[in-house]
Design a protein around this nucleic acid. Structure first.
Lengths: 100, 100
DNA sequence: TCTATATATCTAGAAATTTAAATATATTTG
DNA sequence: CAAATATATTTAAATTTCTAGATATATAGA
């Protein structure tokens, strides 16, 4: 972890919806229904479900999630036409260790 | 910790100078010289020293530090005409626990 | 009380972020 | 291949943040 990356992570975490998404993804089973194409949450939650739950537009959520993925907070896995996102616990730990 | 406070903290940590200040304050002895009026760093570092080290204007640094204090990241102690700031490790832990 | 120093607040222009509509791209399915 | 669906990118207007100069306030010391 370095100053620049920590600042990029901070920017992602400076918006209530984005912090909320990080919280929702802590417990996908509780916060999201099963996706039609996958029977588990091993690769996280489908982008469409995050969009629906947030109430924001598709383009806004796509921008948010792309940035959160770029700085490493989220890990993206594609299955066909769907994208699934999960928390990157390793990076989150590096970040919180850096702050402490 | 709640979503709103976590977002305010995130805003403070979304700027490189402010993250840098949090890092500097981890080790005042290493990063700052002794202040003329106090012989230890028990109450942290004098605002003027933080301003000097950052290179930003007095008003900008004052605004930064006031906000960081308002959301609880920093603890302010006044001694006469000087203000000293130190990290609020308790809140920082609450925040990092919230993220994890 | 007058002056100097430390910090906070007000103000405003510059820069960055927010947000969604429009459009583009990728994938699946008929 | 055409149509439908999922997601990404472009664009632009609205809002927020950044930053410092000017000014205000507080404290110390002469």
């Amino acid at each position: 972890m370095n100053l620049k990356l920590a600042t990029e992570i901070g920017k992602c975490l400076s918006n209530q919806t984005r912090v909320q998404i990080m919280e929702w993804l802590k417990d996908p089973e509780k916060n999201f229904r099963q996706h039609e194409s996958l029977r588990n949450f091993d690769d996280g939650v489908c982008v469409t479900h995050i969009k629906d739950k947030s109430g924001l537009s598709q383009s806004t959520i796509s921008t948010y999630l792309t940035n959160m993925q770029k700085c490493g907070l989220l890990i993206l896995t594609r299955h066909g036409k769907w994208s699934y996102l999960k928390r990157n616990e390793k990076l989150i730990k590096e970040y919180t260790d850096f702050l402490k």
